[in-house]
Amino acid sequence: MIDRAYTASLFVLYQLSIAAGIVLMPLALAMRQLGVSLPIHRVVESLGMAYDEANAV
Results as ranks from 00 to 15, higher is better:
42 R>G: 14
20 A>M: 15
40 I>C: 05
43 V>S: 08
28 A>E: 05
35 G>R: 00
46 S>R: 14
41 H>K: 10
46 S>P: 07
49 M>C: 11
28 A>T: 04
19 A>G: 10
36 V>G: 02
42 R>C: 11
47 L>N: 05
34 L>V: 02
38 L>A: 11
30 A>P: 00
49 M>L: 15
22 I>H: 06
40 I>V: 15
44 V>H: 02
30 A>M: 09
39 P>D: 10
33 Q>T: 04
48 G>K: 05
32 R>I: 06
20 A>P: 05
46 S>K: 14
26 P>S: 08
22 I>G: 03
39 P>E: 12
20 A>K: 10
37 S>V: 09
38 L>H: 07
20 A>I: 06
30 A>L: 13
37 S>F: 04
33 Q>M: 06
23 V>D: 04
22 I>R: 06
39 P>G: 10
49 M>N: 13
48 G>D: 04
29 L>P: 01
35 G>S: 10
23 V>L: 12
40 I>T: 10
44 V>P: 00
40 I>D: 03
46 S>N: 14
29 L>A: 09
42 R>T: 12
21 G>H: 06
48 G>W: 06
38 L>E: 05
25 M>W: 05
33 Q>P: 00
26 P>C: 09
44 V>Y: 02
44 V>M: 11
22 I>N: 04
40 I>P: 00
36 V>Q: 08
46 S>H: 15
44 V>N: 04
48 G>E: 08
29 L>I: 07
35 G>A: 07
43 V>L: 13
20 A>H: 09
26 P>L: 07
24 L>M: 10
22 I>S: 04
41 H>Q: 14
49 M>K: 13
28 A>C: 11
21 G>N: 02
49 M>S: 11
36 V>M: 09
47 L>R: 08
19 A>I: 15
34 L>Y: 00
21 G>P: 03
31 M>Q: 04
27 L>W: 00
23 V>K: 05
47 L>D: 04
50 A>R: 05
49 M>D: 11
35 G>V: 01
